[in-house]
Design a protein around this nucleic acid. Sequence first.
RNA 1: GGACCUGUGGUGCAGCUCGGAGUGCACGCCGCCCUGUCAAGGCGGAGGUCGCGGGUUCAAAUCCCGUCAGGUCCGCCA
Length: 567
Amino acid sequence: MMMASVADVELGRRVSVCGWVARRREHGEHLAFLDLRDHTGILQAVVDGSVDVRAEYVVRVTGTVTARPEGTVNGRLVTGHVELSECVVDILAAAEAPPFQLDERVEVDEAVRLRYRYLDLRREVMQANLRLRARVVGAMRAAMDAQGFCEVETPLLWAPTPEGAREFVVPSRLHAGEFYVLPQSPQIAKQLLMVGGLDRYYQIARCLRDEDLRADRQFEFTQLDVEASFSSQEDVMRFVSRAVLDAAEAATGERPDTIETMTWFEALDRYGTDKPDLRFGMLLQDLSEVFAASQVKAFAAPVVKAMRVPGGAELSRSRLDALTEQAKALGAKGLAWFRVNAEALDSPLARFLSAHEAAALAGVDGAQVGDLVLAVADEHETACKVLGALRLTLGAPPVSQGPYRYVWITEFPLFEGLDEQGHPIAAHHPFTMPHPDDLAVMHTAPLRARSQSYDLVLNGWELGSGSVRIHRADIQAEVFRALGISDEEAESRFGFLLGAFRYGAPPHAGFAVGIDRLVAILAGADTIREVVAFPKTQSGADPMTNAPKHISERQLRELGLRPALKG
RNA sequence: GGACCUGUGGUGCAGCUCGGAGUGCACGCCGCCCUGUCAAGGCGGAGGUCGCGGGUUCAAAUCCCGUCAGGUCCGCCA
């Protein structure tokens, strides 16, 4: 029987509970209290006489459910009004003193927690996180099932398709010198499932990318992967919204009101990022027109963007210098700052401003005395991104802090930037359908072309992305041409997919939701490591297993490999 | 590849600016006492290559250089 349920047992009944000893309180030879723990809670057992158990011993305790004597009820425990008396204690397993205390009072170094993750997982927070994660996944499965989707597994051993993220490589024993790769995502597989007639597919899919780790990135992560035939962008957004909202409700008990929608341009223009955090203000304001004919050299640029920092006039000069350095590191030529004083603007640039310009700056976003106004003059994207980054530095609450603000970002650019040969680079992936209005622009001004791709963002974290896929050979050929991918190259890299498309490919669209990130935010955690049972450190190591490790020469030989030179 | 923060008994911290004997606090651990505690309490005790290596100095946890580990971020993540 679980600890918490003892609270509801009728008094006087004998019950047995199994769990860990959380704490022992001895009162001489004649009385001892044991706090017993399982994931449901703590239960106090009263033992007549001393017991030879310590913290983390695994025990089975059989005792009589008894009301606690007057004045000894513990309101902090769900079982606080009862206790087990006349106890028989069976030791199921002894335990050494743990390397750290399994309570929530002290924050233990993460490296130590990871080395003894199996102990860390016994803690209440980790129990709650992993169980919340299970509820989220369960709700997602139920939502997808209810919407007519079929769960299909796809291979972990896949073919190398050099593009995008670095892949983990798996050597083949039967084909010495040849390799599989672990999938960055089941992208191509799920499109093939569409061709295969699995018209509504989903999968709780493990994805693997050999890229540097972050608070919100592990080598391996889990996505709710979705693809649907004969469906529009709006259909997919509706399917995914249902799954995410159901999951959020299962996790928190509260269903978010809505998921807003914003175009990519609007997000960049107002928030300075494609993953806007809607929990706080400090929106960017455009002052380009004010400074169009300005004499101030610092503002001689196509676009001038400004942002109000409430109360920011207090920031020290050294702090402002640090912000300026940050702005430069992000590609700005400089950062203009203006303290809003009662009299005038306090700034190195103040004396160069016209009255009109000064008034515009002092009025940014309804600025008050005591505020700071920051401005960046540059190309539109640079000016926005720099201020967007400063906005987060100066104003962003921890991601774990509510409320939850979900937003769809739509109409992403089809391409971003140019490669060495001057060809545009696919922003999402090369199978993304261009925006129907931008098919012509694709060749004349490729960087202006929009795509039918969309992201889901929560509190400044990208939860996932998706797109309408190209299912027509002629449009795919045009996109490949714009990307500078020759027919031969396309054939060698994606031949099996293009081949499949020649045999009747339904129009289809899809999405993938990052489950680790969603669960982390719903759990109030600042990193996804808190919602992954056995995560890696930032350097990609596992302090518990000591992975990655060398393997034997014999194993290498069998795989047709030679040991790498150290260094 | 780069920037920044951290590293001191098993755990969490203070000490580091301004060098002077491993100094301190809390938890845990061990022993003794204790019949209603619940972060039990009281008394006593053990436990340290101050991450590692080098340098400066009469003297380094403390200053300098390098390095390793953990973290946050940039690059990277179609």
